[in-house]
Structure formats: structure tokens, C-alpha cells
Design a protein around this nucleic acid. Sequence first.
DNA 1: CATAGAATTTGGACAATGTCCTAAAGTTAC
DNA 2: GTAACTTTAGGACATTGTCCAAATTCTATG
Lengths: 202, 202
Amino acid sequence: MVTKEEKIVAKALEMFNERGIEYVGLRELAAVLGIRVGNITYYFPTKDDLVNRLAQDLSKLNEQIIVEETGTLFSFLDRFRKIFAHHVQYRCLLLSFVHLMEQNKVLSENYKETEKKRFSSIVASLSALQQADYLSPQADITFLVSVFTLTARFWISEASLSFRHLSPPEQMAHYLTLLAKLVIPYATEKGRADVQRFLAGL
Amino acid sequence: MVTKEEKIVAKALEMFNERGIEYVGLRELAAVLGIRVGNITYYFPTKDDLVNRLAQDLSKLNEQIIVEETGTLFSFLDRFRKIFAHHVQYRCLLLSFVHLMEQNKVLSENYKETEKKRFSSIVASLSALQQADYLSPQADITFLVSVFTLTARFWISEASLSFRHLSPPEQMAHYLTLLAKLVIPYATEKGRADVQRFLAGL
DNA sequence: CATAGAATTTGGACAATGTCCTAAAGTTAC
DNA sequence: GTAACTTTAGGACATTGTCCAAATTCTATG
């Protein structure tokens, strides 16, 4: 049983991903669904509410990525592979990231929390990897986190600008390779083996 | 002598930077300038034309950064310092980057050219630095270029999300530090000295 | 089954936006 | 001084997100 609300959300995500949130009007979305605009606003009073719902769905998906704490460098990188896959699924949100954060109060409030959590989560993971002899004791964790978060946030934006000719999996592979190469200088021999294994699997 | 066109451009940049291109209406811009909307559209038939003008101005500014080919790693990093300063000046454009590229045909066409030039320019610079014993022979130039371009494109977007509490110079310093630290593993002893000098000057 | 109450759908109104166009006003050159 | 050109004003237009009241459909209860 698929509720009407779910139908709206699904079709909205589909059209937003294809043409961009800003370029899909509610009337057009309604027409495709065979309903009227007012009917959408019954379930989602404002367009932002609809977007918030999508953001919430993405958030849930990302939370489901069990930090299957094998605690290896491989599994750390693999977490980003899963996150990137979700980014592709909800790319409309990431492509309008800055825009949405400026405009949408609910979204930006939620994001502040998520950001803090994610940041400290990555710091914790990297510190653990350092303890477990995957990363050298001299590795600059803060630096690595900064570059990782920047890349994770905007890889899909850059891909949409510069690698439109590549398929999403190819784009993902490119940026995951970037992340992997990024840690190499700070990895121990053990760590480098994990990185190579990860790169081989892309 | 400041022409009316220049007044419009200047005030538009000011307001766009403050509140975002999408959130400043032409009527409001006109009101602030003490003129009517139709008067703006006389100089800039569409809002995109106005935005294109700003993009063109930024492009000219960036081109003026003489690649003062001292050919040192310091001067290479310093080029990014200058570019970042321009980004602050025209931050409205960079904050709506993806959005603008999707919508504005003229802009995206121009950008393709600029992108190619910039990419090969950075590759050339890094190769030269490798020849000049600033970077190790094993340095992965392509990797470095990728991370540099990603950072240069989106640093100000991330800053607007995560470092709003910092001043633009502080934000710049953070991301320039990132770039500097990024090359350290690939730098020779000579190169690392240049990086340290650059970091000391931030 | 009938009906009251709730949930859903409709259709239109509203203000704001970018764009467009015509007529008026102002400026310049002969 | 008048013709040609530039600039400005003012309003019309379609589109957008939002909002609302009435109509319809659904649901649970007597």
C-alpha cells in the first residue's frame, strides 16, 4: 500500500533529481501526478516542507549506515562509498545545498546538529585508526577531516559541472579514489594495504 | 564619471553578496537605486545578463593575476590567495555556482573554457614545480590538481555553511592552510620550506 | 443503512517575480 | 529648432509559491 503522500514524495524526488528543485513547479508536479496543486499543499503546506521531507529521508538512510565497527581503514573508506551512493539518490538536495541552507530554517537547524555529529564521528574513527596502526602517529587528523568533509559535501556538485559525461558510478569512483589517495601519505604500511584493497574494489 | 550602468552593477553586487542573487528582486534593486525596474532592464534585458556581467568582471579580475612566473611553490600558493580574495569579493556568484551553471547558458559555456584553461594551467605549474625540485618526482600531479580545483571552487560555499562565525580573512586562511598542507607530503625539502613560509604569512 | 464528522480534493484568489512593450521624456547633433 | 537617438516610466503578462473556502469523499457510529 503506497499512500498518496509517498507517491508525491517519490515523484518529487524523481523530478527534482532530473531537473533541479528550483525548476520543477508544484503545478507541474501535480499535473504529472494527475492531481491539483492544492492537493499537494494539503500534505505539504509549503514546497520547503516537501524538501524537508526528502532531507529527512536522506538523513535516515545515512543513519542506517551501521558503523560496522570493524575499525579498519577499508571499512572507513567504505562508509563514504555508501554515503556517496545516497548522495546520488538524493542528488537534488546536494546540488542545491547552499541555497537550501540559506532559505530553509528547519533544514539548516537540523543540519547543524548532523554536521557536528558527523565531524566528531569522523574524528573518532580516524583517531581509532591511528591507535590501530592504520595511520601514522604524526597524521594530522583535523586536516584529514576537513578535506574529507569538504569533498563529501561537494563532490556531486563538481561532478555535475565537470563530469556530466560520466555515469554516477564513474563519478563516485573518481571522488572515492581522491579520498583514498588523500590518506595514503598518512597511512602506515598496514593502512596502505587497506587503501589499495579499497581502490582495487572500485 | 560613474555611468548608471556601473552604478547598477555595483549596487547589484553589493546586495547579491549580502542576501544572495535569488533573494534580491529587480524591483528592490531598482528601489534602492531610486529608479524603475524597466530602467534596469534597459541596461540588462534579463537578470541573467546582469549576473553575466558580474561573472565577466570576476573573470577579468582573475585574469589580471599575472602568473608572475617566479615559479616557486610559494608563488603558486600565493596565486590561490589572490583568487580566494576575488572569490570573497564576488561571493554571490560562487555561492550560486551550480545553480547558475544549470540555468545560465552563456555562463556555463564561458565556464567550460575557463575551466580547461585553469586546469591545464595548474597542471603546468605543478609540473614546473616538480622540475624545479619543489615537488618530488613521485608526486601525483593529477591528484593534486583535482583536490585543488575542488577546494578552490567550493571553499566559500562550505565556509558560508560551517564558518559563518569567522571573518572572510579567517575563512580564507583556513582553506589556504588546507591547500598548503595538502602539498606537504609531495614536497621536497626545498618545497616544504616554501610551504612553511607561505603558512607563516597567513 | 443512514448520517454526522473528519479527511481529502477542488478551483480559484493573492502577492511577488522576471520579462516585455509602448509611450513619454530627455539628450544630442545638424 | 527640429529630427534622431537614448533613456525612463509605467503598466501588462505569465509564472511562481501560498492560501482559503466550498465541495466531495471517506469513515465510524448509532
